[in-house]
Every structure is written in C-alpha cells, then in structure tokens.
C-alpha cells in the first residue's frame, strides 16, 4: 500500500517532524488512528474539525493532526473547547485527554462539561498513571498498584470514568481498549455523531512506567492483558461480582438524546431579541 492510499495519510501534518514523542509500543498512537478513521468515515472536512488537548503524553496528539488544533493547559482542555464550540457551533470539536489530565486537575471541568451537555466529543486515554512526569499515581490507578508516588501500593480507589460521565449528564458514553481498535473506531464515530457531550474511554497502558513499576512486562504483554482481561457489557452481566472485579467492561453505557447546550443558547438569543429577558432586573441596570 502506498502512502497516500493509507487512510491516515491525508490527516497527518507532514511538515511537522515525525516520529512522535510517544514511547515505541505506546497505545496512544492507536487512539490517534482510531480518531482519524472515525473522522474519515463520517466524511468531515478537515477545516471543520478542531482537536483540543491538555497536558501529558496524550496532550501531544493534536500537533500531528491536520485539523484546527489546540494544545492547552493541564486539565483545562474542556474549558477551552467549551469556549471554542460556543463561539463556533459549526465546528466539530474533539477533546483528547489523559486520565490525570481529565479526571484529577480537570475533574471539575469534566463533570460540568457533561452536565451542560455541550456538543463536545471527549476522549480519555486511560493508562492508569501519569506517564510524562514519570509514573505517579492517577485517579484511575487501581488499588494496590505501585507508582513512583505510591511506592507501598496505591490506597486511593479509582474513578469509574464512564459511570462518572454518565452520572454527570453525558449523552453518549462508551469504553473500549487500544487492543480492540475496530470497536474503538466505531465508538469514536458514534461519539462524534452524537449532538451532545459524548465520552469515549480508551483503555490503554503505559509499559514504560506503570508496566515496569508493577512488573507487567513489555508492551506486547500489556496489550495481551487488555485482550484477556476485558469483556463486553453483555458478557459482564453473566459474571459474578467476584469474577467481574478488575475486569475491563467494554461497550456503550449511555446513549440518550437531550437538548444540546449551544442549541439551547440559540433559543436564549431568540428570547432576548424578542424582549423576554427584561423581567430580570439587576441593580443599576437599564431594566
């Protein structure tokens, strides 16, 4: 297959120097190609797509992608994306975050973006650790696992990312892994198509830090674990609670339709222009 026949080729920035910053064997690249395939399948024009990220290994993804891209501050990607989407509702805005990025420093923005149901597609690449800073425990590090800041084992329970997003108000929520790349493509496609806040948790791994600290072997072994240690939602229902412990459950957890934020605000504009807002007086206002 020649280069320009590869579906990803047209979506990468060739003036930007490759290779990328990720360790060889990292799962983040698989999420990047899944994202490209999803955009390609929907047939979105590159000019109409924005990818916004925060800080961390995952945060470096947008620079390689030939869209409107924004690498923001740690944890705040959703807040930047909210402003961008609100200013330009016609853009398809995809927000790519790591687990520490989205759920620790950015946890508040995560639940509020979901609550507003603003039309963003959030992708959390969950590798259970802070990779770029060298392996500190994150809000998704499993109990008992080791990290450079949990040398005696992690005592903090992890966030269930999908359940958190669904409870906060996201209208599409799904989980898959970087081993199940075809499934991941499909979920990201569904998430982008959803007119509302959508979340895909892409379970990945970090063999460089988490794998080494927890003696889980090289990237191939960790990839194999994603295959062997995950089940579909329907299969999970047949497992006992004991059997389900520690197992990655893949599937769509939430798919609802509720009014999207920017569409609701268009109605606010209409009401204001019809003069309905004058009932609320503020001190010193024109009334």
């Amino acid at each position: 297959m020649s280069q320009d026949e590869h579906s990803a080729y047209n979506y990468l920035r060739h003036t930007k120097k490759f290779p990328n910053v990720w360790c060889s064997g990292c799962g983040i690249g698989i999420v990047m190609s899944a994202l490209i395939r999803a955009v390609d399948r929907i047939g979105l024009a590159k000019d109409d797509v924005a990818v916004v990220s925060g800080i961390g290994c995952t945060g470096r993804m947008p620079v390689y992608l030939d869209f409107n891209t924004m690498h923001t501050t740690h944890g705040r990607a959703l807040a930047f994306a909210t402003g961008l989407k609100f200013a330009r509702p016609g853009l398809t805005v995809i927000v790519i975050m790591g687990d520490g990025d989205a759920l620790a420093i950015g946890g508040n923005h995560f639940i509020h973006a979901a609550r507003r149901n603003i039309g963003l597609t959030a992708i959390v690449v969950d590798n259970s650790i802070y990779g770029m800073t060298g392996g500190q425990h994150s809000p998704t590090t499993p109990l008992g696992s080791r990290a450079t800041t949990a040398p005696y084992g992690n005592i903090e329970p992890p966030f269930p990312v999908c359940e958190l997003a669904a409870a906060a108000g996201a209208t599409f929520v799904a989980r898959s892994t970087v081993y199940h790349a075809v499934e991941l493509d499909r979920y990201i496609e569904q998430a982008i198509r959803k007119n509302g806040f959508s979340l895909v948790e892409a379970v990945s791994y970090c063999h460089t830090t988490f794998g080494r600290l927890n003696k889980l072997g090289p990237a191939v072994d960790m990839m194999r674990r994603l295959k062997e240690n995950s089940v579909t939602k329907s299969a999970a229902e047949k497992l006992s609670p004991e059997q389900r412990a520690g197992v990655i459950v893949r599937g769509v957890f939430c798919d609802e339709d509720r009014p999207e934020y920017t569409a609701l605000y268009d109605e606010v504009i209409q009401r204001a222009q019809e003069g309905a807002g004058a009932a609320v007086r503020t001190t010193g206002g024109l009334g």
Binding site: V52, M70, T72, T73, R76, A79, F80, A81, T82, G83, L84, K85, F86, A87, R88, L91, N108, H109, H112, Y265, V268, I269, R271, A272, Q273, G277
Partner: peptide, 27 residues
C-alpha cells in the same frame, strides 16, 4: 444575547479565562 453574542457562567475562574481564549481563537 440581544446582539447575538454569547454568555456562559463557567465552573470557576480558571475555566472562565480558558473559555474566553477558546472563543477568541474561534474569532
């Protein structure tokens, strides 16, 4: 909104300035 402009109350001040920068990049 009377002028077709956008107002949003964010979850904190960090998010507020982030949203402003995002909107400004949006024009």
């Amino acid at each position: 909104p009377k002028l077709g402009g956008k107002f949003i109350q964010m979850e904190d001040e960090i998010a507020s300035l982030a949203a402003c920068i995002g909107a400004s990049v949006g024009g």
